[in-house]
Design a protein around this nucleic acid. Structure first.
Length: 501
RNA sequence: GAGUCGCUAGCUCAGUCGGUAGAGCACCGGACUUUUAAUCCGGGUGUCGCGGGUUCAAGUCCCGCGCGACUCACCA
């Protein structure tokens, strides 16, 4: 421990460090040597077990052994009230000199601070004012905090500290802990639903030489021993379809994707995606699965109705289904089935004020997508499956045999944002090669997000992919909408932040 | 990438017209055996985000930069 360590600290930390050193030398007690504490009950369990305890009544036989962090201390001479918190809740402690003994009470007064972890043994009682309280008989200082807790009344609100020092946020704001518990339940619910349908959870590479399965810019990295440039994955799609070729049956993966893009309330560079592939299924089966997954996930946190940004959605209602062309007809009043040339489509785009978006080379299908993104997406508040994307923007989807310019694909929108993307997977290896070649031309024309050409993936498709339905769901957004979180950073424990210095 | 707002004590925040840096909580010392935002007495603990400039004098005005939030743009 260097001298400098003390100089850089604020007064509180400096005092606490000195106190720690004195505790070791004067009492021969080191709070950091403790390894275990036999906690037999949590605070919430205590609360429910003794909810019927009457004011001024004590249960002398309970002998509760529990533990937690001291949040506040109210010292009044020969008695001290404290609030003890653990991951389940918070309960009041009452230390009386008569109960804990003079030596122990002295130790409490002298060495124990708010923020410290302690183990306690005691009996429950209820105060005159009706507060369930543990009368402490014994206690043990399990670990000391030398850094002060955020203010007890206002808590911690500074967003920068909340995201950079999430531990402080979690200590100060129990509702933040609750959001992440709900996130865990939602993801568990997804696993349960998928596994109830006989879907196998698998893990595929995060590092690979080709980042495929989506149109996005990847993160680059380098493997020293192989001396090869590698990418962090942007999707798991191509790997999971290889597994279906390999006769693994229904498979899914929940994991991180990495996309080298901007950061805002809906985007974090690393985010959690669920992808699922079912042989002998199509995009319609995936629509049904999406509804089931989302409904079950909401149920897992006790909801059938959700509210986000003051907009309510009743998830028990069937999700809407609308083709992309219908959506554009409805919201932009343009009928793309009546448009016969790219020029005509571009002209209408200019008439509708999209001229600045155009380079003059767009196809009718690209314009359709532009219309959809410009005029429709934000209107799709109620969960809505948008169907029938053009082949041109869907390099991995099966064509609609009735209308081969379009695909058997959907994207699910809610609150105006995309939450799922699915299709009947393209399994024609000749068509797949042609689609990749088309993407390659786009890439060569300067589109950094065009899909990578993956020869081995075509090789896999050539080995025979059964008819397959596949879907990806952005888990962070689902968690946002189900929990009401306004920013993606509120559902990611450690969101990506720019270094400060 | 553009705009708006923010950055002052550990936390939450005030700081007027440019004139000695403030409050509550926390913390330190003292009193107190049913308090619960405990109370009472005493104590201010600071690189005012960073760097320049103007000025006798800058937390405050000007310029640049950093970080963050929001909006827009980007982003299947």
């Amino acid at each position: 421990m260097s001298e400098n360590q003390f100089q850089d600290d604020n007064e509180i930390v400096r005092t606490r460090k000195e106190k720690l050193l004195r505790l070791r030398s004067e009492e021969n007690y080191d709070p950091y040597v403790n390894e275990t504490w036999d906690r037999q009950i949590t605070l919430n369990e205590i609360r429910s077990k003794f909810e019927n305890l009457q004011p001024e009544q004590v249960d002398e036989n309970a002998n509760l052994r529990t533990a937690g962090r001291l949040m506040t201390l109210r010292r009044q001479g020969k008695a001290t009230f404290a609030d003890l918190a653990d991951e389940t809740g918070r309960i009041q402690l009452y230390f009386q000199l008569n109960n804990v003994g003079e030596k122990e009470y002295d130790f409490l007064k002298k060495w124990v601070d708010s923020g410290d972890w302690i183990g306690i043994v005691g009996n429950p009682c209820r105060t005159k004012r009706g507060e369930l309280t543990i009368m402490v008989k014994e206690y043990k200082l399990l670990s000391k905090a030398i850094r002060p807790l955020p203010e007890k009344w206002h808590g911690l609100t500074d967003t920068e500290i909340r995201y950079r020092q999430r531990y402080m946020d979690l200590i100060a704001n129990p509702d933040v802990r609750e959001i992440f518990r709900q996130r865990s339940k939602i993801i568990s619910s997804f696993r349960e639903t998928l596994e109830a349908h006989g879907t196998l959870e698998v893990e595929t590479p995060v590092l690979s030489v080709i980042a495929g399965g989506a149109n996005a810019r990847p993160f680059k990295t380098f493997h020293n021993a192989l001396s090869v440039e590698m990418y962090l994955r942007i999707a798991v799609e191509l790997y999971l379809k290889r597994l279906v070729v390999g006769m693994m049956g229904r498979v899914y993966e929940i994991g991180k994707n990495f996309r080298n893009e901007g950061i805002d309330t809906m985007h974090n560079p690393e985010f959690t995606m669920m992808e699922v592939y079912w042989p002998y299924a199509n995009y319609v089966d995936m629509m049904n699965l999406a509804e089931e997954l989302i409904r079950n996930a909401a149920k897992s946190i006790g909801k059938t109705e959700i509210e986000w940004n003051d907009m309510k959605i009743d998830l028990s209602k069937e999700f809407n289904r609308l083709s992309m062309r219908e959506a554009v007809r409805k919201f932009a009043d343009v009928d793309f089935d009546a448009i016969n040339s790219d020029e005509e489509a571009r002209k209408i785009a200019v008439d509708k004020g999209l001229g600045s978006e155009l380079t003059g080379k767009e196809s009718k299908f690209a314009i359709l997508n532009l219309f959809f993104e410009s005029f429709c997406e934000e209107k799709l508040i109620e969960p809505t499956f948008i169907l029938g994307h053009p082949v041109e923007i869907s390099p991995l989807s099966k064509r609609d045999p009735e209308n081969p310019d379009y695909t058997h694909r959907f994207e699910l929108f809610m609150y105006g944002k995309e939450v799922a993307n699915a299709f009947s997977e393209l399994n024609d290896p000749l068509d797949q090669r042609a689609r990749f070649e088309d993407q390659l031309r786009k890439k060569e024309a300067g589109d950094e997000e065009a899909h990578a050409f993956d020869e081995d993936f075509i090789n896999a498709i050539e080995a025979g992919l059964p008819p397959t339905g596949g879907m990806g769901i952005g888990m962070d957004r689902i968690v946002m909408f189900l929990t009401g979180a306004r920013s993606i950073r509120d559902v990611i424990l450690f969101p990506t932040m720019k270094p400060k210095a």
